[in-house]
């Protein structure tokens, strides 16, 4: 039985060509798939980038997303890392109000979360936190009581654990 909607982490290796982000985004928009987050950066191979998508959908939708991504000429490889043994991280910068009276309390929280303070001003701090979404969400929740002035979050990036590189991707077509 197909499972209901779930969050999937899809990683695509793409050629660095002008417009590749546009092609990918256009495909998602036109087919009506919803991107929860997207992050893009260079890969270990010159001329290739890696995109990490978080997409919500049932198995059928996710299979379609993968096939439609694969169909783009500039997309070299597509992997669904959701069920894999993966490390997934995102980074957030949080600008939080801080007074001389509560600054140490904030620093304690930052320590507990193994986050960093990367900027200090008389009435605010910038905190850098890295981790999975739950961790970032939890810290953010705790910091809200101090007053969050600004928040910047990257999308998720994900990588398979162990020595394996990204698995060859049988693109859900029966030709495994």
């Amino acid at each position: 039985m197909p499972k209901g909607p779930a969050s999937h982490t899809i990683v695509a290796l793409v050629q660095d060509r002008p417009g590749v982000l546009n092609r990918v985004a256009s495909m998602f928009r036109r087919r009506g798939y919803n991107i929860v987050s997207l992050s893009v950066g260079h890969s270990e191979q010159p001329g290739f980038s890696r995109m990490t998508f978080v997409v919500n959908g049932d198995d059928h939708t996710i299979e379609q997303v993968r096939n439609q991504l694969d169909r783009l000429i500039d997309v070299v490889k597509v992997s669904d890392l959701s069920d894999e043994n993966v490390v997934a991280r995102e980074l957030a910068l949080i600008k939080v109000q801080a007074t001389p009276y509560n600054r140490s309390e904030i620093i304690q929280l930052v320590d507990i979360f193994r986050a960093n303070i990367v900027d200090v001003s008389p009435d605010s701090l910038i905190i850098e936190v890295t981790g999975d979404e739950d961790k970032v969400d939890s810290l953010l929740q705790l910091l809200k009581s101090f007053g969050v002035r600004e928040l910047m979050r990257t999308g998720r990036v994900a990588m398979l654990r162990g020595a394996n590189a990204y698995p060859g991707t049988p693109s859900a077509n029966g030709n495994q």
Binding site: Q64, N67, Q68, R71, N173, G174, N175
Partner: peptide, 8 residues
């Protein structure tokens, strides 16, 4: 020949 057609 187009995998995205199958199951669409």
């Amino acid at each position: 020949v187009d995998p995205s057609e199958i199951g669409k």
